[in-house]
Amino acid sequence: MSAIILKQVGKTYANGFKALNGIDLTIEQGQFVVVLGPSGAGKSTLLRVINAMDPANSGEVTVDGELVQGRNLRKIRARIGMVFQHFNLVDRLNVMTNVLTGRLAYRHWLGSLLQLFPKSDFELAEAALAEVGLVDKAWQRADQLSGGQQQRVAIARALTQQPRVILADEPVASLDPKSSEDVLALLKKICVEKNITVIANLHQIEFAKIYADRIVALNAGRVVFDGPPDDLTDHRLNQIYGLDAKESQHDRDELALADA
């Protein structure tokens, strides 16, 4: 069964901006998909309609055979982990608590009032922290960690959900090149070892080529390329985005390498 199916999905924001325009996409379980595109192309929106953070206006989104709609949101979101550009951890809480919040969909609010969790949740959280290599930081406050470490905590939080899908919205945009590679390698490892579908927004084409099984390129809310990384030649890129886009991406990559 396909993990995620988008059928003619459209999304227009309240200010009239049309972010997605009739997207059709089918993603198999366990794929590592990278979404590319310039700013405003709809990359974030594409991810966010999947777990209805920004619900689609038209069309259908199906996750694991279930239609994404208001009623079953909590259930669907429990199975989808999300990683954000700015990590979105709660600074004052320790790493373990942050990771444990991944289990909240499964917990009744009464127990949550006192911030209590069952032993099984702790075991899941510990396993997740081991997976991302941060077990020794479990009791430190989240804001005492570096950017790369915080993003790994965020990934651990997503893992604790025992998700079928992980959506990564510009996961490395705020990280230095070394941490970026660590995070992407980690996501790839999780994808391969646990058969979790990963959909990541990136603007570094080179990263996409290294890690992706499949690249989906967007422009102005439409899919303009959908295929394996090898097919995304420089020639194709020129076709899709025009020379300017390729050159500026090249400049960006050079800058990134120079900073390393």
């Binding site: 320790n94 608590t97 006192l114 911030q115 209590l116 969790f117 069952p118 032993k119 702790f122």
Partner: peptide, 9 residues
């Protein structure tokens, strides 16, 4: 017991 707080002990 089954339920714990997110602290070391």
């Amino acid at each position: 017991m089954n339920w714990r707080w997110p602290t070391p002990d």
